[in-house]
């Protein structure tokens, strides 16, 4: 590494210092969640906040992995997220790219149409009626289609496409190659960081699907992971104990293990996607 000048060195030290501090603050509570997931109930009850468990146990994880409800909810979440995200990203990038064309007639009306839905929505009852009249209830299609595009993502993605150099388009025009070729063979490869970013956004949203699942699905065996997780974490209101007289308990280790196992796939996938959006694209090289 090349030698840095005094001021730059100070700058670098400062950057590392702040980041390490921030990471330490972020990791501290996470560690607690992790520790409880490996600890016994006695330790949880008696020790308050702790970071290293004295007695190490895998019971929480064993319980979940052996729970048929958990495995089926996990499978459902994977299917929901994989197909949903693919659909999301295709529809969103096509639309965002189209709307990024400044010369397009009706463009600003269409942009406004997208933007308007960010603020105003008809609410869940009429949306439910639409989903129902399309005979989508009780299938994943209800969720995939009704959440196919997030207006926020269209707007932000569009602004990314707009910031791409217009020379790209000009050159394609001169080549005489069509818009589809331009999009598929030039824009998409160049936009990998952007596409990776929005894939992550959609993936996380889909993985966290809770309410739409409750609303559109009736079969308990179609429910995704977040529904399972909430049913574990919910505390029954002690003042209405008459409504539910089934005394049912999860150990704290099982609850925290469920949180860890639910977040794990997204934590694993992050560095993989991150490679793409940290790389930096050589737009300049295309121009030249």
């Amino acid at each position: 590494m090349r030698h840095e000048k005094g001021l730059d060195r100070l700058f670098t030290i400062l950057v590392y210092f702040i980041l390490i501090l921030a990471a330490a603050m972020a990791i501290f509570p996470l560690f607690y969640v992790l520790s409880v997931s490996f600890s016994t109930e006695i330790e949880y009850l008696t020790r308050g906040f702790f970071v290293i468990p004295k007695q190490f146990t895998l019971e929480g994880y064993m319980y979940l992995l052996g729970h048929p409800g958990f495995t089926s909810a996990f499978r459902n979440a994977v299917i929901l997220s994989a197909v949903g995200t693919a659909l999301n990203i295709v529809l969103t990038s096509l639309m965002a790219y189209g709307l990024s064309k400044r010369w397009l007639r009706f463009r600003s009306s269409l942009n406004f149409m997208v933007f308007f839905t960010l603020l105003f929505s008809g609410g869940m009852i009429p949306t439910y009626l639409v989903v129902r009249s399309l005979h989508l209830l009780d299938s994943f299609w209800a969720i995939w289609l009704s959440t196919a595009i997030a207006p926020f993502n269209v707007i932000v993605m569009r602004s990314f496409f707009q910031s791409m150099p217009s020379e790209l388009e000009e050159s394609a025009k001169i080549d005489g190659s069509g818009e589809w070729r331009l999009f598929l063979s030039i824009i998409v490869p160049l936009s990998k960081p952007v596409i990776a970013t929005f894939t992550l956004f959609y993936l996380v949203t889909n993985w966290n699907t809770y309410f739409t699942a409750i609303l559109y699905l009736n079969d308990a065996d179609l429910m995704p992971l977040q529904v399972f997780l909430r049913q574990m974490l919910v505390e029954d209101d002690p003042t209405i104990s008459n409504a539910s007289n089934v005394m049912y308990k999860y150990t704290p280790a099982a609850k925290m293990a469920a949180i860890i196992l639910t977040a794990l796939p997204l934590l694993v996938i992050f560095p993989i996607l991150q490679k793409h959006f940290n790389k930096g694209v050589m737009l300049g090289s295309v121009k030249g």
Binding site: S72, A220, D221, F228, Q231, M232, E235, Y248
Partner: peptide, 12 residues
């Protein structure tokens, strides 16, 4: 039917 902690049965 409303379900409480632990949720309902996994299927019918």
């Amino acid at each position: 039917i409303a379900s409480w902690k632990g949720g309902g049965w996994p299927d019918n």
